[in-house]
Structures are given as structure tokens and as C-alpha cells.
Nucleic acid binder design. Sequence first.
DNA 1: GGAAACCCT
DNA 2: GGGAAGGGTTTCC
Length: 586
Amino acid sequence: MTLTVNAFSANKAGMTGLDKEKIQKIISSNTSSNFQEYSSKQIHRIEARIKRNNELLSRLSQEEIAKAESEMNLEAAHIEAERELTRVKVHIDMDAFFASVEMRDDPTLRSIPMGVGTDLMLGTSNYIARKFGVRAAMPGFMARKLCPELTIIKGDYLKYRKESSIIRKVFDEYDPNLESGGLDEVYMDITDYVAARKDPVSRKRIRYRGDCVCRLPLLSENDAINIVNEIRFRVEQISGLTCSAGIASNWMLAKICSDINKPNGQFRLADDKETIIEFMRTLPIRKVSGIGAVTEAILKGIGVEKCGDLFEKRGIIKLLFTELSWHWFLRVALGVSQRGASEETDNCLRHRKSISTERTFKPTIQLETLLDTIHFLCADLIESLAEGNILGGHVATLSIKFANFDRISRSQSANYRIDTVDNFYPMMERLLRKEMKRGLKIRLLGVRLSKLEFLEKETDATKRKSQKSLHEFLVPKKRLSASTTNEDSDDLFSDQFTIPPSEADSTEIPSTSSRSTIQCPICNQNFVYDENGKINSHIDECLNLEIINKMEETPSEAAIRPIKQAKSSSKSSTERYKAFNELLYC
DNA sequence: GGAAACCCT
DNA sequence: GGGAAGGGTTTCC
Ligand SMILES: Nc1ccn([C@H]2C[C@H](O)[C@@H](COP(=O)(O)OP(=O)(O)OP(=O)(O)O)O2)c(=O)n1
Ligand SMILES: [Mg+2]
Ligand SMILES: [Mg+2]
Ligand SMILES: [Mg+2]
């Protein structure tokens, strides 16, 4: 049996038609034996699972399988009865997000292959680099072998986070209850918006600063496709960044669709059962969010490669997997989202569940240095709590990665609130000392707080959506009504972008207005009405200035960075973190 | 409750 | 020579 575990999913956007053999060769020939052993261990584990599955399978009688299959048929009928085809679900995902931001801000990067990250790891790459096989989650040094010309930019996480909040204001207008999946993507339900928008809306151009591409004013139609085009267009105007969208009757499908015409494109999957089932029939399972490298390999081990196979093999699947899993697999196969009469009473806004920080460094066994490292990590984490209105946590976890890449975690609950270095560090120290007895070199340490307590302020910014679980992906949670969502008082664009769908943007000159002067909605400067071009370009500049100001509002020191070194306010910490800093790779 | 193995960006 | 960092859920004990 030859097992393939694809660490990288096949055919990522912008990576079709690549010489995968050649790329794989270059990757393997640059893999250290250390990492190779780690990968082999992973593969062996999966092989063992596949073998076990096959043994279980060989002991099953045809009757048992037939019975399971008919039970699945029943289940499928239930799912089918709940198939929801009337919602307009949209997934929007920024194109090469981190890389696009860097390209926007430095024109010299626009025409060359580049990646964002470090020599050790890339967070993403631009589409030029993808042609060489360079992609997210690939070490920078490997990427250089594939593409010697590659420029690697160290990212600025704070910048991306700010960018994320800027574009989200556009999405918010179309669905105030949108759910976020990471910095660069959102899940929306624009059914109500589409229904509410009766008349075409004309919007004036808002040019992003710099020499980005600008387009003419937009006059949008009112169907889903045009509205999503409009959303993407406005995102580009406000940010200078492109995105791609998927439109379908549920989020699982929409997410898959947003990748189809990436970059800067969109795809709509028709909302009828036949189209959906045919779409799923030939769709590689890995495309589904929630099916990763391991599940792909395990399913392949029982002959499942396409989502359609999940239905074909439903009998054995029911017998080999947990109920949650087989149920979800079945829904995936059918491409079904349900929206039953019984909705979860549960919320849709939720607090984050944990906060963590970790560092990779040159493997060491020196206790002092390691202790200083966790001291730094603890201090860093405690310091970052305020930003998220977190008071502290009741569970502290130490994460260790040994030189051979094996990872363990050790956690401890407390009946008091862990909220200072003084009541955090000692716990971590104790846990670390215990594990040091193994006498193994360590390459990463991390600390985490969970069971968090929050400073209860009614600001939505402190809350976040839960990650969609297998089940939730297909069964949407009940949404808050729009009226329960508060306006951010410090929202720069609150005047511009909270206008009901039927009205035009305030950046557009009201055609019904007979006033002879008009006020810039941002700086309140007055303009004579017929100086049309003048006010428009003024507002452009004003808006752009706002964005720039906002970016500069928080100094780069303030929050998360991709790689943070130990810096300190006091001399003693400078000394304390010295050895640790020297071991940091970046 | 704790730990590991998945998953996602 | 070198393989990240942040967050989540599910499963097993
Ligand atoms: N393993 C990963 C994957 C992603 N990211 C970061 C960098 C990406 O820019 C951003 C968004 O992830 P996407 O998966 O959406 O990838 P991109 O936006 O970069 O590219 P695409 O155009 O394929 O969406 O998250 C990361 O740090 N590490
Ligand atoms: Mg993206
Ligand atoms: Mg994304
Ligand atoms: Mg997947």
C-alpha cells in the first residue's frame, strides 16, 4: 500500500497546471532528516488508522453494511427534507491577503514573486510566486529553492488586522450579522438585503490613495450576482485590494465557490438540488472546509476521494466513524444546508475562548533560558489581555515542542483568576520543570489562558463569532436581529456606510437636493453644489486621509506582531531576555 | 478536567 | 541550516 498524505492541498487558487513532481522533488531534497522523521511518524500513524479501518471492514458482513446503508438512506431523507434553497449565502475571501497589502503599499513588489513571512515560514505568497509552487505554510528557505528570485517580506500583523476592519465595514452594510472566518474572510447572508433593495443604487467612486486602479461610477442591478460584484468593487475602492466571492444556498457551498474564480472573481452555484448534487459528486473531498490532510488520507483509504463517494460508501462510513462524523459526511455529500423549524436558541455572538502566544527558537535544553522564555511569554500575554477586555483566565496551559517536532501541552486549572505575571509564571515554571526531566531539547514554548473572564462592556468589538463546527457549518445558528447590534461610536465611516439599502451613499450628491452648498461628511468643509468635480475629489482625498490616519492611529508597538522579540522597559528584563533573544531565529 | 489530534487562517 | 503563530472543535481517558 502506498500512502500519500498531502500536506498541501492540491490545486490551490493560482496554482493549476504546475509541475507537481518537480516541486515535490525540490521539497523532499531540502527536507532535513529531523523533519523527515517527524513526517514519517505522522504517516505511520495514519497508515495504522487505515489498516485498522480495513480490518474492521473485512469483518463486516454484507448484511451489516446493507443495514447501515439503509439507515443512512433514512437519514439522507431527513436531510433532504430540510434542504434550504432560498437563502443567498455569500463567502468573501481576500486575494493573497497579506501579500496584496504589501504589494499595494510598495509598488515595486507588484510585478515580482514575493511571499510574506520569514525564512522559516511563509504566511502566504502573491500569485506570481504561486506559479513557482511557492505558497502559504511553506518555509521561506524552501520557497527560495523553488523560486530563487523570491522576495520575502516580514509581515505586519497589526496592519492586516486594521485592513480587515476597514473592509468589514463594507460587508457590514450588507449583512450586519455576518460571521467572520479569520482576518480575510466573511460569511454573509444577504437574502434580506437583496429583497429589500428595490431600486438601482448609484455610487460615486471612492479612490484609494496612491496609484491603484480606479474605475468609473457603478450603477448596480439588484440581483445577488450584481450586488456581490458591487460589494467586491467597493472593497477594492476603499482598500485597494481585490477579493473573491462564492454565492450559494449555504455557507459550505459558498466557501467552496469563492475559490473557483479566484483571484478577483466570483462564482454562483445555482440553487437547485440537481445542480448541487452534481457539483458535489465530482468535488474532491479536500475542498470542503473541515476536511484536511489526515481525513483526506483516511477517506482515501476506504476509496473515498470525491464528495459523491461519501454517499456511495455511506454504509461503511456509518460503521467506521463517529455519529457526528458520518452525519456530517452525509450532509457534505448531499451539499445540504438545513434550516429547520427548530433553531438553536443559542446566540451568535460569543466571546473568544482562549488567548495564547508562542515562540520558536534554536533548540535548547538550558533551563535558565527556557524559564526566561516563558517569563517573557507570560508577561507578553498578560500585557495583551487589556486590548481584548480580558480580565484573566482560569486555566493556564504550557505548550512545548521538542527538537523532533513532537508537541505536548500541560494545563492547570485555578479557582482564582490568573491575571498577573506573578500568578501565571509560577504555574508555567512548575509545569516546565516537570517536563524538563525528559532531557530533551526544546524548540518552541507557548503559554495560553482559557476559561476567560471578560470586562463586560457592551461593545461588539470585544466579541467574536465562534468557529463553525462540523455541524454548524451546515446548520446556521439563529441570528441576532439587527436592532440589537450597537453602532461603534468611534466608527470612522458610520455616517457614510450605515445608510439603508434603498438609499444612495452619502458620498453621492443627492440629486433631489436643492441646496446650493454641500458639506463634506468627513471634515465638514462646505462646497458650492455645482462644483461637482471639486467636492468629489475632495471627498476622495478626505476618505483616504481618514484611512491613513486610522492606520497610523495605533503605533506599531501596540499589539500583535508576526514575530516579536523580547523588549523590555527595564534593564533587568533586557538582561533577563538576552539569551532567549539570541536563540530567536527572527 | 486534561491531553492529543484534528481543523482553519 | 533552517519547517510559524494564532485560534478553533472533537475524541478519548
Ligand atoms: N497557513 C496560513 C494560511 C494563511 N495565513 C494568513 C496569510 C494569508 O494572506 C491570510 C489569508 O489566508 P487565505 O487562506 O485566505 O490565503 P490568501 O488570502 O493569502 O490567498 P487566497 O487568494 O488563496 O485566498 O491568512 C497564514 O498566516 N498561514
Ligand atoms: Mg484569502
Ligand atoms: Mg481566507
Ligand atoms: Mg479542506
